[in-house]
């Protein structure tokens, strides 16, 4: 996809997420809007994986460690044909498999996440196996910046550096917010770039709500035999004015008025594009 198509796609997906959360009355709204451009870059431009090849050992892997932003993942997977869009009508419903976190009962999802701080370690395992089996696949792991407080993230980072896993790409959705407020006030994890460099990563920073820019960075493989970290500078709630940079939109559900206003904003942005 070209730059414009990617941006457009990300806004169309925002409409799907907005609707999904509004209708089911549950969801991690700000978190999903924050990372949707990253997922768009991955699923429409970067990942060597299709609904058909998903699960085959050669296919690239994606692990969403910040599992709570599952609405973004569901929107992308259904749009890419991993499962029918109609299935999401039962999102969060009785006995549904489309629950509020990623589960591998759903086609396209490799691992069950939701408890923060697991994804990078899982990524290390999949990347190690690929090395052992001489597979040319890449493993991508998406984490939150608040999530960086988990000690397990750093245990995994140490292992990734130790095994020089250049087939592992960690991405941090660096929106500066978590549930209780600004990450720098809740538990400061900075300087993230310097920390990951010290753990043996090749670190890059990108404008995180620009899918084309993210795609370019992710496609540029580093020459060094090091795992990569992409720090995606994002805005939590990106795309709807009253939601942007507001910690309280972490898992807030829009009212009817808010839904309509937000939808109008997304539509007018799409018209501009």
């Amino acid at each position: 996809m070209n730059e414009k198509e990617l941006t457009k796609k990300a806004y169309e997906l925002r409409k799907d997420i907005w609707k999904l959360i509004y209708e089911s009355k549950t969801g991690h709204t700000g978190s999903s809007f924050s990372c949707i451009d990253i997922l768009t870059a991955l699923y429409y431009d970067v990942l060597k994986q299709t609904p058909e090849t998903f699960g085959q050992t050669e296919a690239d892997s994606y692990i969403q460690s910040k599992g709570h932003a599952v609405e973004a993942l569901f929107a992308v997977l259904s749009d890419r044909g991993y499962f029918p869009k109609e299935d999401l009508a039962n999102y969060s419903g009785f006995k549904t498999q489309y629950i509020g976190h990623p589960t591998n009962k759903v086609n396209g999802i490799e691992m069950n996440t939701g408890s923060l701080g697991h994804g990078l370690g899982i990524g290390v395992g999949i990347a190690l196996a690929a090395k052992q089996d001489h597979l040319a696949k890449q493993v991508y792991v998406l984490m939150g910046d608040g999530e960086q407080a988990e000690g397990s993230v750093w245990e995994a980072a140490m292992a990734a550096g130790n095994y020089r896993l250049n087939n592992l790409t960690a991405i941090i959705d660096h929106n500066g917010l978590q549930i209780s407020g600004a990450t720098k006030d809740v538990m400061n994890s900075e300087p993230l770039a310097a920390k990951y460099e010290a753990f043996g990563f090749d670190v890059k920073t990108v404008s995180g709500n620009d899918p084309a820019a993210i795609s370019r960075i992710l496609r540029t493989k580093s020459a060094e035999s090091k795992p990569q970290l992409v720090i995606a500078q994002t805005v939590k709630g990106k795309g709807i004015s009253f939601m942007e940079n507001q910690a309280n939109w972490h898992h807030k559900v829009p009212s009817k008025e808010q839904y309509e206003q937000g939808l109008a904003e997304l539509n007018s942005r799409l018209e501009e594009l």
């Binding site: 629950i99 509020g100 976190h101 589960t103 069950n112 996440t113 939701g114």
Partner: peptide, 9 residues
């Protein structure tokens, strides 16, 4: 309590 969030919760 977190019924719809799945087993992790």
């Amino acid at each position: 309590s977190y019924s719809n969030l799945g087993s992790s919760h």
